[in-house]
């Protein structure tokens, strides 16, 4: 009788082991496709793994990997969807945090930084979380939202000499003030453009304002009031207002150039973790 029980147990065990082997082979196959960057096929095979995985042993890892594949293919909405499913199926705190960090990183790439901050604030309350990690990704979220000063503060919490802290500080220092550019253009037309580094457009703007101002003043001096009023309204004020608007636009453009240069460095040359 005992022998029969042992044999039957062996039989069942064999069936179970074989089924498990099959699903693990399937998972490995999908994983290899992902490693060789065949993301479309990898997603199919991970989905197949999930479909046949009756014991739900790959519910976390397969969904997580699908998220990674979608992220690599820049399908960020889908990536977030699958990272969220992975988070829901996480069996340990580490797995849950890992999925949440991926959701944060994908939100940063998607430029939905508000949501990234929201999740960072939530996971910061978890005792087991590495605070440096939270501050690091918070810094990145600030960078992608063009808030370099706040980014520098976040990185400084990790290390006052953090490479990204220095970079963010430098970018913040290099950026020009849009308000200041506009204000000085109120006082001296063209000066805002010159302040933003666009010297020739600044001088042209100054020239147009001087010329139209001269025409307007001379018309009034010669008692041609209607002539002067039309010149003032249609020509001079138009150049004057345009100069202020232009000064703001040039400042914004200059700031964009500085930010983009820093982002290009982060994308191509920075060796640390990136979203």
């Amino acid at each position: 009788m005992i022998k029969k029980i042992v044999l039957f147990t062996l039989f069942l065990f064999n069936v179970q082991v074989n089924a498990q082997n099959q699903i693990s082979i399937q998972y490995e196959y999908a994983h290899n496709l992902m490693k060789t960057r065949q993301y479309f096929d990898a997603i199919t095979e991970f989905k197949r793994t999930l479909f046949f995985d009756i014991d739900k042993q790959y519910s976390y890892s397969a969904n997580y990997s699908i998220g990674e594949c979608y992220k690599a293919g820049a399908m960020l909405d889908n990536a977030i969807q699958y990272f969220s499913i992975a988070q829901y199926n996480a069996r340990t705190d580490d797995e849950k945090i890992s999925a949440q960090l991926e959701i944060i990183k994908t939100n940063i790439l998607r430029r939905t930084t508000e949501r990234a901050h929201q999740i960072l604030n939530e996971i910061e309350k978890i005792s087991s979380i590495n605070k440096d990690s939270v501050n690091y990704w918070r810094g990145w979220a600030f960078i992608f939202n063009d808030e370099w000063k706040e980014a520098a503060n976040s990185f400084a919490k990790i290390n006052p000499n953090h490479e990204l802290k220095k970079l963010a500080e430098q970018v913040d220092m290099d950026k020009v003030s849009v308000t200041f550019a506009k204000v000085i253009s109120y006082i001296l037309p063209g000066s805002g453009q010159i302040y933003s580094g666009s010297i020739l457009p600044g001088l042209i703007s100054l020239g147009w304002n001087l010329l139209s101002g001269y025409w307007t003043v001379s018309a009034f001096n010669e008692s041609r009031v209607f002539d002067g009023s039309v010149l003032l309204g249609l020509i001079w004020l138009r150049f004057y207002r345009g100069n202020i608007q232009n000064a703001g636009d040039f400042a914004v453009q200059k700031n964009n150039e500085i930010s983009n240069k820093a982002l290009r460095y982060l994308q191509h040359e920075y060796k640390g973790n990136r979203p």
Partner: peptide, 28 residues
């Protein structure tokens, strides 16, 4: 015969472990 038991068991329990069989392809 134990290794073959899986096949026998699969057939009797209607479990097809080949995920790429036509039946499983259709289900998926």
């Amino acid at each position: 015969l134990l290794p073959f038991s899986t096949i026998l068991f699969s057939q009797t329990m209607n479990i097809d472990e080949n995920y790429f069989s036509p039946k499983n392809r259709l289900a998926f």
